[in-house]
């Protein structure tokens, strides 16, 4: 066992884990306010990334394209909630889940109709991110990775503050806690739901653009991230932003440790895709609501 690799593997894990956390944030935002698990999140991530890519292809500045993509998926999230999810308020949770699975198929199909449905694409790295990176703990981090981590942490921090300090954030938590009670004090549950979906769309585009910049854009890859980060939210707790951060980093680190120390022992490797799930199972056996999720107690 080569312990010299350990700091590098940990650092690489933190970097990729931060991106996982950002991608997982959309799940948390929606679940935190409406108790809905959005299985179409990966498709929204892909939509945001491809909107930004299409805009840069038409000559737009990368940063402006990223911003417009975030606004576009903000609007898309709001639209999805208004058209599909609002009608499902009060319906059994399995019906709502089926709607999001159906949405995933529809958005996926629509994306396949665009020029980006097939093939592999890559952003032209903006000048500010294309220079030399930094050397940390014996491993080199590119500017793209650093920017990705910073953007992820800024958004995660911003939403943590939003839910803990802002009136709207506390209102959203109240709606998640008890819709009927929130409605009885005059809270617009519809508005809260719409905002949650819109914010989830916004963070999805940010994750998509960062992922696209780091490792290229493919529809399968980007849409697949939605499911890849699912263990992150289960591990951290579906309704916890802090859980998404810790869960993301934990999964990222576990993946890298497995790839660094176990892949060489297993023919063909690939333990990075399995090992985090083993840890996830163990954690869930001990804490079924995740590391930071709310433990719900029903009194009868």
């Amino acid at each position: 066992m080569n312990l010299d690799l350990l700091p590098q593997l940990l650092l690489a894990g933190v970097v990729i884990g931060s991106i996982y956390a950002l991608a997982a944030l959309g799940f948390v935002l929606i679940y935190k306010s409406s108790r809905v698990i959005n299985f179409a999140h990966g498709q929204v991530i892909a939509t945001g990334a491809f909107i930004a890519f299409a805009l840069t292809q038409s000559g737009m500045n990368f940063w402006l394209a990223g911003l417009l993509a975030m606004l576009a998926t903000f609007a898309l999230g709001m639209l999805i909630e208004r058209v599909f999810l609002r009608r499902m308020v009060g319906e059994p949770i399995i019906s709502v889940i089926m709607v999001t699975i159906g949405l995933a198929s529809v958005v996926d199909g629509l994306l396949h109709l665009t020029p980006y449905g097939a093939g592999n694409f890559s952003f032209t790295t903006p000048a500010a991110l294309s220079g030399a990176g930094i050397d940390l703990l014996g491993t080199q981090l590119s500017r793209v990775q650093l920017a990705g981590v910073l953007a992820a942490l800024a958004l995660l921090g911003g939403f943590t503050y939003f839910f803990n300090r802002s009136t709207m954030g506390i209102t959203m938590r109240a709606v998640a806690d008890d819709q009927m009670a929130a409605m009885s004090v005059g809270t617009s549950v519809e508005r809260v739901f719409a905002l949650a979906w819109a914010f989830a769309g916004l963070t999805a585009a940010a994750a998509g653009v960062i992922l696209g910049l780091m490792s290229g854009l493919t529809l399968t890859g980007l849409a697949g991230i939605g499911l890849k980060v699912f263990p992150v939210v289960i591990l951290g707790g579906l309704d916890s932003v802090l859980g998404a951060i810790v869960g993301g980093i934990l999964i990222g680190v576990l993946e890298n440790l497995a790839a660094g120390y176990l892949d060489g022992l297993v023919p063909g490797g690939g333990t990075r895709d399995v090992f985090p799930f083993i840890v996830l199972l163990i954690v869930l056996l001990l804490r079924p609501y995740g590391l930071f999720g709310t433990k719900e107690i029903e009194r009868v």
């Binding site: 590098q8 690489a12 990729i16 490792s215 399968t220 790839a259 490797g269 690939g270 990075r272």
Partner: peptide, 21 residues
């Protein structure tokens, strides 16, 4: 070493560092 890597390889630090060592 023979390693399998698919299209979801967001980060290859561990793979490459292991090869280097």
């Amino acid at each position: 070493d023979v390693q399998e890597v698919g299209g979801n390889n967001l980060d290859n630090t561990a793979l490459l560092k292991r090869f280097e060592s």
